[in-house]
Design a binder for these strands. Structure first.
Lengths: 185, 185, 185, 185
DNA sequence: TATGAATGAGGCTTCATTCAT
DNA sequence: GATGAATGAAGCCTCATTCAT
């Protein structure tokens, strides 16, 4: 319970102020616990952000891979996953920002980074399949993957600013169309 | 001279360790000057990062807009500018990272952010022109713009990892093709 | 049972790390009990060390005064007690170190210090007797006493490092001879 | 200047309250400098005590070995050095207490301990010489050395309590006689 | 211009102690 | 008797900034 409050508060503050810019005292205060309690659950500030990073990456990966069985084509599956990602991102704006901000951060340990990345390997495989069967443009998988990721981030950012559900959906669809259009062979 | 050494060192360190994670004492030490000298040129740490941010944004904008007169079509111009951006990014990896890292940072003053953004407005106008003349897919300019920006970042990141000039160029070309393919009406 | 485990663990840790250097949490952990249990038996950390100090001093005094009736001369009695002290010290190295370390410590209460000292007054009387009867060099009793004590400590320290029983005994005998030789009138 | 004030204050406080029992904030306050200044001169609290330990050991060794050329016999030299040690100890009570207290302390680094010990090796050699020439009782040098050291400590302690110069000198002479008496073959 | 000793507020973390279970 | 989560004061150390030289 307290542990969860600390994690949730840390997420908000790290996103707003950065890692070094967020005193642990502020985290515990905002979480409504004492300084001691924070360090009871997390031995160091680094362990706190590592835990946070790992949890969020895992949660994102799970949200990504929900119900894709209906789509037959590789492109369909990819679009489905990307739509999942966008939907999750819109509903979890802080977590998305956090992931982007700390994706290359020296404050997150190498181990946490590796574990975080491992949950997304299945997407790389999927893109490989697409290239092999000829439906995806045959370019460097890393490049494709990287552009996909950053574009999804851009779509989420834009869509989040739009309150009207209809228009928001249009932004998402347009954005995904744009990326898929670029990817297709 | 000392001022430039300080700026260059600050760039490296801010990128590696973040703003709050970089003591001014470390900057001055790495720059080979005394703590006092740093504060002679920049009244505060904030003024230092603001100066850095503004300089880099301006330099990037200038690099972007080099020699585009030959391209007749809007799409051609856009591609030209994007290629400029990628080329500059590959040659200035720290500056690119710095711009991405501090684009939404609370440590950079609002004024510096605004001044930085102003140098890139001409790109937005260009995209507008493309939509009006029917060569660009008629979707939200911000969305397009945002996807362009993040994709350029992705291309730079990938291309930087590739040492072989030929292969590197291929990555750049493939990446730009992918984005342009998605943008075209 | 738990109380004894706590006392034994505290002895080891206080000797190794000092009083302030030993967290109560470490004591309870090493003793295999919870933090709460320690404070059930000892209201404060000070009460713990006071108890430890008093117990050890008493134990040492009892070991010292075992079976001395056979020795007729004062010098013989003194040597007997000193031998007892050395024997006990070799068998209880931690307790000896503890006593030396906390003999003048502000962490042990005045009351515990006084009680501890009281058990050894009979030795002072004995030295007085020796001087009166002319067998002991007539110098300040405190000086004699102090040199005796510190020398015993030195013998114990040296003898403890020697594993071979024969050699160890020689160190003890040589050491006691040396001191007795100096004391004799 | 400030550095020296810090060292002097640390000496007093470490002796009175132990290492862990002395907050760095108290040291700087009593020394009349700010907390930052202490850490400007000594990177850590450990470096402070290490420096202190090394300085004092060296000073003691120098005081010990003053003017011994007149004494012809080994025993005479030893007594001369011991008298030097006692005299220095009486004039520097805090330093003596400090040396005794931290001689086996885990707070002083191994390196500092070794350096501290090295200054006194010449005394061991001297005792060796005495045994070889037959003037010193042929027992373990370490034992002799250890008893000498602890007895000197005891003499200093007792003598320091005596204000009257004549009586004080008598305590010192008696004490040294006692030890030399024990040591002689 | 340049230096670096000095400052003191503030950051991370520890720890003796309590208390509900 | 026993547990261990919770507390918050206090400890060590860092760091932006100043100022006399």
């Amino acid at each position: 319970m307290n542990r969860d409050k600390i994690l949730a508060t840390a997420l908000t503050l790290f996103v707003e102020r950065g890692f070094s810019g967020t005193p642990t005292a502020l985290i515990s205060k905002e979480a409504g616990v004492s300084t001691g309690t924070l360090f009871f659950y997390f031995k160091t500030k680094e362990e706190l952000i590592d835990t946070l990073y790992t949890c969020i990456k895992q949660e994102a990966a799970e949200a990504l891979s929900l119900g894709s069985r209906k789509d037959k084509t590789v492109a369909g599956k990819i679009r489905h996953y990307m739509a999942n990602a966008v939907a999750w991102g819109i509903q979890n704006p802080k977590k998305i920002t956090f992931m982007e901000q700390f994706a290359n951060s020296p404050f997150v340990s190498k181990g946490a980074h590796e574990e975080g990345t491992s949950h997304f390997l299945f997407m790389e495989d999927l893109v490989h399949d697409g290239i092999r069967e000829g439906s995806i443009r045959p370019i460097d998988v890393n490049l494709l993957f990287c552009i996909m990721g950053s574009s999804i981030g851009a779509i989420i950012e834009l869509a989040s600013k739009e309150q009207d559900p209809g228009r928001r959906q249009k932004i998402v669809d347009d954005g995904l169309d744009l990326i898929m259009g670029g990817m297709r062979a």
